[in-house]
Design a protein around this nucleic acid. Sequence first.
RNA 1: CCCGGGAUGGCGGAACGGCAGACGCCGCGGACUUAAAAUCCGCUGCCCGCAAGGGCGUGGGGGUUCGAAUCCCCCUCCCGGGACCA
Length: 809
Amino acid sequence: MARRYQPREFEAKWQQAWQERGQYRTEDELTKPKFYCLDFFPYPSGAGLSVGHAKNYVPTDVYSRFKRMNGYNVLHPMGWDAFGLPAENEAIQRQVPPRVSTARNTANYKRQMNMMGLSYDWSREINSSDPEYYRWTQWFFLLLHRRGLAYRAPGSQWWCPVCKTILANEQVVNGFCWRHGDTPVQKKELEQWYFKITDYADQLLDDLDSIEWPAHIVAMQRNWIGRSEGAEVTFRVAGSGQPVVVFTTRPDTLFGATFIVLSPEHPLVDQVSTPQHRAAVQAYQEQARLASEIERLSTEREKTGVFTGAYAINPVNGEQLPIWIADYVLMGYGTGAIMAVPAHDQRDFEFARRFDLPIKLVYQDDAAPQDAGTMTQAMLHRGHVVNSGQFNGLADGPQAVDAFITWLEEQGTGKRRVNYRIRDWLISRQRYWGAPIPIVYCDRDGIVPVPEEQLPVLLPEIADYEPSGTGRSPLANLPEFVNTTCPACGGPARRETDTIDGFGCSSWYFLRYPNPHDTVAPFDRQLIDYWLPVDTYVGGAEHAVMHLLYARFWTKVMADAGLVNFREPFARLRNQGVIYGSDGHRMSKSRGNVVTPDEVIETYGADALRCFELFMGPFEMDNFWDEDGPKGQFRFLHRVWELAGSHPAGGGGDSPAVLRLLHQTIQDVTERIEDFRFNTVVSKLHELLNALERQGCSGDTVDTLLLLLAPIAPHLTEELWSERHPGEGSIHSRSWPVCDPALLVADTCPLVIQVNGKVRDTLQTSRDLTRDDAEALARASERVQRFLDGHAVQKVIFVPNKLLNLVVS
RNA sequence: CCCGGGAUGGCGGAACGGCAGACGCCGCGGACUUAAAAUCCGCUGCCCGCAAGGGCGUGGGGGUUCGAAUCCCCCUCCCGGGACCA
């Protein structure tokens, strides 16, 4: 075997052989231990895959291969998130119908994935824009509808003027469209379908404790759900007695309220404003309406607001508080009205100072007494209650809050209340490229769900699919689609023409892979019970709220409907880091800094690409692409090739040192793959190779090295294995090497000798040396003596088989 | 402003509280070659020194410890996320 390592001579050959013999087809052997390793399914972009995508797919492929070799029945599938805004926007931009571009792009993705040697079971490939798939997306819509979790409501919602559709709150980022970072969203009034995710807010929060997810993703979900506990308190408008209900998390500061603030959109504003203030109020409302979301959200901005002329009566002490309106109070949260306690809330404090409103302390800190007239910021969570009647003296804390709420409830002027930041999920899209919402409107029967047996509601193939901007989907222009008969009465009726948000498709796809071609149900219960939940789920952190929150929500709905026996779909989540171009920017076609797997494979082969993707840094860390990086991995693989060539299979007779290193490597590599520390897995294999080249080894040891390398470099190892073990089948069907702990123990070990914590010598000593023997050896060392000279040893620190530290004066 | 994660050679990064810089890239020197590429071998944190050797070194300052990149406190800077949510 004098051939040099030329990956292009055999990589494609093995890819084809694996495909033909179904090497990675997953069988439903329900008695074997299972492992479900899933990648976020991508939307197939026309730009194809970059080396950045491989940072996700290579590690999960290595992990899946590792799990297979360890005896697991592994489900490692791939599919296409083909419906939705990203795919459709790109199709419009390129002037290719989305059905056509999707087919073209998925074929390209699949080609690239195969070229990287990814071991997906392609017999389970799914595509969310396939009627056989979206039929069941529609089915889940009906399930949610049946369970009272899908409803239609009018409302002023976020509209992207470029996408020409309404967006979910989650899809609005700092006031901009999630697909267009430079396009401010606008409000538009439309009738829309919502999913009642708010019903599940507490569960979505509580169950975060039961899953193994990155801390920052968990934190983002908590933050998005935004639970806060407090009370609703009813004030009365002086004169009319109209109720003004406010939400507060600090009912314990009620006596300190000095004014009330309504959101400019609050319905009471028109009713309470007095004639002499009306003009100013309306001007302010108009100004607030025109202000962009970005302007309103800015915390830098100085507080603005106007007085309505009206007063409200504080239920705890009868004081009359002026009612103001200000845009720092949001209509969408709580009740859209607040009681302002400037002494103990920073925003209220700033507002009070700006408009010269009174500040009243109801907590005081004896250690650092505050003065309402001179304080420069609100006093938060300190001291004890003052100026509050029977509550005076209570220490700041939950007990004080409870005491106030109990009292409010007794008086009938307030009640305990939990508020959430999360809103219901708006799923209507005025767009073509999605699953039609399976609803029919009938003059007689109203809103009628399409019966299950009539699914799918097919998305018609049309020439003019571009969004019109009228607030209606292009489907509305198709009489043959719109006009139908009412499933209830058989009379004439109209179809809903909006489509389901693409995130609906991705909220259940992980349930489809176990039985992807099921024609009678979305999934097979027995297979779901075996395969789910997903054991390891891997993808980018950009889905921290949207997809991951929605998928958790649907799973809980299904669990409540008795369809599945688990409440969390993804037991363990990992986020791979981002690979930036060598220019430091995100890879993008417009910047021209995209590196494709194709070009790297062309030069160095798929295995070198795979090694470098793993080696370049910790799995979850961001990194810059180094075009020379794969070169080093190519050299490594080349040396493995040479070593195998000079050490045919068989042998034995390795030195204890070689066996020790080999088994230490087995142990380390096994642990580290399990921990997703792939960069050090590759290093460990480098180190092993370096040592084997220097110290010599048997063919058996080379075989073990190949087995350890098999998940990482599947082509090279397959090629070498087939030559070394003809007729014995694929290396990828072999078992993972097992570490023999007995071989890890050495007769001698290096003992580090320190003087005052500084290393002065390293002695090769026999194992399990006693403290006294070690000290004697250390004192005998000339290098050590130099530093002991003239000093008395005061203390000796001894760590057996490792270290001796002599502490001198 | 709040939350999360960081800061280690020219670069990417290693390192159960115990030999800092593993492994790799780049660079330098050498072998092979008519030559180059490829490949292989050696060197490669900084300072002093011919060398042996010594000193200094993990963003800055303090602390705990026999011993700190690692643990604690303070500060600076960078990245990600959130941000008037009452």
